[in-house]
């Protein structure tokens, strides 16, 4: 790891001020993406700003039909939150199959979304549920947030404070694990919203990161059942092809995972 300076601010404003002072500084939440890349010297922030203990960034809230998870809440706390399990159990399930117990003890939802790894699990939930990403500057709709591989709508120094999920009528997540990294080889989140809308997002599959799957959405809107997807064709065009799975295989997985996500 290159040399760096560690800061532990106690508020969002203090964190933002530290960031504003140094364009090469980076926020540090759970550190379970940033530290591995720093160890491999693929990132060299001059400073890391630890937001992991800022009280305003930790916790889960439900109000009306909205579940809000604050950015620095760990996976462990999300997965065990009674509010999450009750309002959107699919999110608790997704969290329980993300990484391993030690990763879940540290990693945060905000870090996952900000990083937007094309094989990360949470982006699928955020996009499928049409969540709102709240930052210290504004609110960003999920549709506008993910901008391709490791790229988001966040500006330099902009800090995610929370993610608000509308509580759906039904939702589910199914993931085929990457045999080595255990990220999603392909994961699909299906959601039927209370207004009858159906939204489906796949992660791990596309060369451009998390994506909606309109073919499956249409079929499920007509008939919310696995059999409705039997004849849906998913094109392998634009899907990831690597030693762990061809594009055709991933296209197949999108369908199979969607079917299994229905429960």
């Amino acid at each position: 790891m290159y040399e760096t300076t560690y800061h532990r601010p106690s508020s969002v404003d203090e964190a933002a001020a530290l960031s504003a002072r140094d364009a090469e500084a980076k926020y540090l939440a759970g550190g379970h993406t940033l530290i591995p890349v720093m160890k491999q010297r693929l990132a060299s922030p001059t400073a890391v700003i630890d937001i992991g203990r800022i009280p305003a960034l930790i916790g889960v809230e439900v109000s009306g039909d909205m579940l809000t998870i604050k950015a620095a809440t760990t996976y462990f706390d999300i997965m065990n939150s009674a509010d999450v399990k009750k309002s959107i159990p699919a999110i608790a399930h997704l969290t329980s199959v993300l990484g391993d117990p030690q990763v879940r003890a540290r990693g945060t939802i905000g870090g996952s979304i900000a990083n937007n790894d094309p094989a990360a699990d949470f982006p699928a939930a955020v996009l499928a549920l049409g969540a709102t990403v709240k930052t210290n500057k504004r609110s960003i709709a999920a549709n506008d947030f993910f901008k391709g591989l490791f790229t988001t709508a966040l500006n330099d120094g902009e800090l995610i404070t929370a993610i608000s999920f509308p509580v759906p009528a039904k939702a589910g997540y199914s993931k085929m694990r990457h045999p080595a990294s255990r990220f999603a080889l392909t994961g699909v989140f299906v959601a039927q919203m209370k207004n009858g809308d159906v939204r489906v997002a796949a992660t791990g599959a596309s060369q451009n990161g998390v994506m909606r799957v309109p073919g499956i959405e249409t079929a499920l809107k007509a008939n919310w059942s696995a059999s409705a997807l039997e004849n849906v064709k998913i094109s392998p065009n634009g899907l990831i092809a690597d030693i762990h799975g061809s594009a055709e295989y991933r296209a197949n997985l999108i369908k199979v995972m969607a079917q299994r996500a229905l429960g």
Binding site: G31, I35, P36, V48, D50, Q102
Partner: peptide
């Protein structure tokens, strides 16, 4: 990934190779 470095921080199992001393 390997977990050989696992310790407990405040009672929870964590990979100590992925935690800065400051944290």
């Amino acid at each position: 990934q390997c977990g050989a470095c696992t310790v407990h921080i405040d009672g929870r199992a964590v990979k100590s190779c992925t935690v800065l001393v400051g944290q």
